[in-house]
Design a protein around this nucleic acid. Structure first.
Length: 584
RNA sequence: GCGCCCGUAGCUCAAUUGGAUAGAGCGUCAGCCUCCGGAGCUGAAGGUUACAGGUUCGACCCCUGUCGGGCGCACCA
């Protein structure tokens, strides 16, 4: 084990290995698959494992008997545990030594911001791509959710010992940006009193006029009269929108290691990828797909009669890797479809050394997961290279009523609107609170509330409250105890210390499952545990020894809250100002 | 028609990758401030995990089917 991290599961694994040897069980590779958990029910101890049940069959011993043997052979003396019990069908339940818990606040404070970090990810390089909103307009609230989840996931992976990088894929080729350029050109013409039609499918939002107003006028006038002026407007509009997106995300506290331009893949990487696919023999030229599942068959027939079947195209055999049908990668007119540069982009990620690509996509792309995954496998990438997280839609509510979002009219709630309304901390906390795969009701009023209706506030309040107590203690020249404290008092003190002890495991598990929403849930629990402790235990009191011990525990709790909030990109305030007007 | 996601307390959501008696917040009801931040805390009520089968020591989780909701099914991106 590298580093000085407090990792209870390392202690457990070491002890268990010894116990297995002593019990004559050859766990072999199974040891890697053993699950350790903090039981939901505290009556079941501080840590539990089902190892006896999972190894029983291989060891040809009844789970209960195996558990008894392991419990007897577990070297408790040098472990953080005073007892191990066998329960139920064969669970092994461990209980902390009092002195181990009493010393925990010291370790937490010594490790500081590193408490909770581990090397379990073994430095695996992971590229997290998120938001990647089309550079054609303002970002919406789903992008805000993706930004919160994506940046949180990157920090979480880093804390768990992976080597993550973040990327925003700028879709700067194709019809959409051409249309944006045309739309801006039309609005610029309108601005200077000339006539240039807004394209049928053009962008009509008010922001297009704002973009037009920010163009350098002389150059824009010149471009307007040139035959090839459209590309000038497209390029300028694109740069303005990308800068706009960058600054909005920065205001939200979200930055990326790289903004990757799709245009950089054309034509070199795209052509190389096509050649590679052809060399692997996974493409063919035809008018119709050859590989089609029975389910998609009817649809293909229907399409053939309609607009489709317009000539000989190049197809990729994605159906060989689980897609419902083969897909066109080069149209009959020779232009690549969106799929080909996407494959090239992901091949590029792999070539850059990333072992996993985690993509956060909107709900409208979930059908594409199977297609891209199959395409990458047909290129020879590892089956587990691509991992897509669907970030589900957000329903904005105001006092329980749906807020209307009409994209057509250009009147929709943008990421910026959201920030201005509820603030970055509240937005991020609430977005991260829920599993990203489930639809989210986001109540704008609740998000601004300064009480425990609002979990972001609740956790920040707990932190500020602790800092306030520490300040109060300092006024009385009371400092937290140094060195190993005396044993904690049974009840709230021990309960709080136990809660703090599980933080590293929470980080590890959340990172492994790629579920950042476990972090805010843990922080809410920890805050509640602190408030309970605070309510029952006078911290700054007459007994100096007790005061200093409790201050130490408080400081450790604040450290854990701060570490958790940092993973979410949420601030941990030293004090909270009371809202100007109290609620009536 | 086909595919994917979802269905958990009145509401919004969890449930440590198949673990022990399914938990939080809100809302409802009943309590707690001579004292460190009451912006808080305690307790109660509230469940056939949509439904029906199956798999096994054990199922909200996996499999099959049914019902209900969302999304997607271009040589668009």
């Amino acid at each position: 084990m590298r580093g000085g991290w407090t990792l209870v599961w390392n202690e457990l694994a070491r002890g268990l290995e010894a116990a297995l040897r002593a019990a004559g069980v050859d766990a072999g590779v199974a040891l890697e698959r053993i699950e350790w958990a903090v039981p939901r029910d505290r009556a079941h101890g501080d840590w539990t494992t089902n190892v006896a049940m999972t190894l029983a069959k291989g060891a040809r011993r009844p789970p209960r008997a195996l558990a008894e043997a392991l419990a007897a052979a577990f070297p408790l003396e040098e472990s953080p545990f005073r007892a191990v019990e066998v329960a139920g069908p064969g669970f092994l339940n461990f209980r902390y030594k009092e002195e181990w818990l009493a010393a925990l606040p010291d370790r937490i404070l010594a490790e500081g911001a590193a408490y909770g970090r581990s090397d379990r990810g073994a430095g695996t390089r992971v590229l997290v791509e998120y938001v990647s909103a089309n550079p054609t307009g303002p970002m919406n609230v789903v992008s805000a959710r993706a930004a919160a989840v994506g940046s949180g996931l990157v920090r979480l992976l880093d804390a768990a010992g992976h080597a993550p990088a973040s990327e925003f894929y700028v879709n700067d080729s194709g019809n959409q940006v051409d249309l944006l350029g045309e739309s801006v050109a039309a609005r610029f013409a309108e601005r200077i009193g000339e006539s240039r039609p807004l394209p049928e499918e053009g962008y009509r939002g008010e922001y297009v006029r704002e973009l037009a107003a920010r163009l350098p006028e002389a150059e824009a006038r010149a471009a307007l009269s040139r035959a090839d002026g459209a590309s000038w407007f497209r390029d300028r509009a694109l740069e303005l929108v990308v800068e706009w997106q960058k600054s909005d995300l920065a205001a939200y506290g979200v930055t990326f290691d790289r903004w990757f331009r799709e245009s950089s893949l054309h034509p070199g990487a795209v052509e190389r990828t096509l050649a590679l696919l052809e060399a692997r023999g996974v493409t063919y030229r035809a008018e119709r797909p050859e590989g089609v599942t029975e389910a998609a068959e009817a649809r293909v027939k229907a399409e053939a009669g309609a607009a489709g079947g317009s000539g000989i195209a190049t197809w990729l055999r994605t159906s060989a890797h689980g897609d419902s049908m083969d897909r066109v990668i080069v149209r009959s007119d020779g232009r690549p479809t969106y799929l080909l540069p996407d494959i090239a982009y992901h091949a590029d990620k792999r070539e850059r050394g990333f072992r996993h690509a985690i993509n956060l996509w909107g709900p409208d792309h979930h059908a594409y997961v199977a297609t891209l995954g199959a395409a990458l496998r047909s290129l020879g990438l590892e089956p587990d290279f691509l991992h897509v997280l669907i970030v589900q839609q957000v329903n904005l509510l105001r006092d329980g009523q749906a807020v209307k979002m009409s994209k057509r009219a250009g009147e929709f709630d943008t990421l910026r609107d959201l920030l201005d309304d509820v603030g970055a901390d509240n937005a991020k906390f609430l977005f991260l609170m829920r599993s990203s795969s489930s639809h989210l009701d986001f109540d704008l009023e609740l998000a601004k509330r300064q009480n425990d209706d609002n979990p972001a506030f609740y956790v920040q309040y707990a932190h500020a409250r602790i800092r306030s107590v520490l300040r109060k203690a300092a006024e009385r020249n009371l400092a937290p105890a140094e060195g190993a404290g005396t044993a904690l008092e049974a009840g709230p003190e021990v309960a709080l210390a136990r809660q703090l002890a599980t933080w590293p495991e929470l980080v590890r598990g959340a990172a492994a499952a790629r579920e950042p929403h476990r972090v805010p849930a843990y922080l809410v629990e920890t805050s509640a545990e602190f408030h309970r402790f605070y309510h029952e235990c006078r911290v700054v009191g007459d007994d100096v020894a007790v005061s200093r011990r409790r201050l130490r525990l408080c400081a450790a709790a604040a450290q854990v809250l701060r570490n958790g909030l940092a993973l979410m990109g949420v601030t941990a305030p030293e004090r909270l100002e009371r809202a100007a007007e109290a609620s009536a």
